[in-house]
Write a protein that binds this DNA or RNA. Structure first.
Lengths: 131, 131, 131, 131
DNA sequence: GTGGTCTAGACCACT
DNA sequence: GTGGTCTAGACCACG
């Protein structure tokens, strides 16, 4: 799996990293039990600070996407994937809401918005998208 | 228009404010040419600092949602609202993409995601929503 | 002479006004000895504050473009027009310099810049341009 | 690169700063990818407030002249420099127009004006100029 | 009274 | 140590 970062982005690197890995899981590119590079290795690979990688991994672990074993290293969770909790949905809505509001202001039709979402669904499931 | 802020949120106050105002425009609660409170007045109202309000206003001005009028003060833009530009769409996709990816991981069906979007569309257009 | 103002512009109204009048003189639309509306009349016409008009007139008077008589009112100067002083040139250069610098950065050729200037010269002398 | 400010000038400090940096880019003194001092360092250097420097940097970032890089700090943009857009040209003309109008009033010949521009072009490209 | 500019100093997130 | 956010309070230009 290729991880590309945008160092000028406003999005913190560790969040970008988290998102890429989640996208990898979503696309099926990263399978349950598959192992991820060690903090050190990945840090060197991407030439970013170890702490940054660590932070991303901790986030993913706390959400239950990955497991960190002393010896086996970092692997995509073997347990169940996290579910759609009520909290998650609330959070999701809170994140989408302003995006929809702005789209409305700019005159985007509901259908257009939805079709963008559909497109992204397909793109991600196919493992497409480098962004 | 009632503006409520969440001071404990991770989202910076000025972003929250920006979003609320955009939502107000989207819902039709704020109409073209309608004036917004002065920087100082709003600051006192919300008990936050003048500069924080100003930052939100500057953002909105730069995006073309409001105008800072020499005489009338701050008003919702009388010119055309900003459009759906290519850049906006690109940005929008970049913002939605990780949300969709995570939803997929958590096993949310495409239909469910889309129906949440539809719900939000309705909610906003009706001027609903407390968030 | 039609004076149009842009109330959302960053340029203060009284400066805009000053500039318009100077442009009127440059184009020949306003001739030596011609009279300008009184402060009150113009203020009402443009629906701006009297102080604003006054400020513009004072600027023009101080630079020697107009004369303000108790009885005859405001007229384009009957004396000699102000000249190109050393101070004026220094000032002019200071104003153009950053514009040229930015143009260079953006890859504009010297010829293009000069031709824009030539175009403006013609436009103004013909009394063209509403901007 | 030596940055000198005029604290008594009417031009806000952050604009002066912006202009100096753009001039530095135009002259070639500041090259693509070259890094600028940190907000705090420059603030101390010039004995102005951090926020003032920041404002200048934000302006330059928004226009695409610099990037604020997560690791390297502030650098002259590595991407393409901003171009001569239609909007830029419109703006430029609006800025030059009153300067030309006044020059005409004062009896400056078109040739003289153009030769001043040419002189400035040369001066800037050579990295000259103290202003 | 309005926004624009500037200062001083604080805390936090990120690397 | 970096930029980002926020506060508090001051002065000025504009209308």
């Amino acid at each position: 799996m290729l991880l590309s970062l945008n160092l000028e982005s406003e999005t913190p690197i560790y969040i970008q990293l988290r998102n890429k890995i989640i996208e990898g899981i979503a696309s099926g590119e990263l399978k349950r039990g598959e192992s991820l590079p060690s903090v050190r290795a990945l840090a060197q690979d991407l030439s970013v600070n170890m702490h940054t990688i660590n932070k991303a991994y901790q986030l993913l672990k706390n959400d239950g996407f990955i497991q960190i074993h002393r010896q086996k290293g970092v692997v995509i969770t073997l347990d169940e994937m996290p579910k759609v909790t009520e909290e998650y949905t609330r959070n999701l809505e809170e994140n989408i809401r302003p995006l929809i509001a702005e789209s409305i202001c700019r005159g985007m039709e509901r259908e257009e918005f939805l079709s963008i979402c559909e497109k992204l669904f397909k793109e991600i499931k196919k493992g497409g998208g480098t962004s």
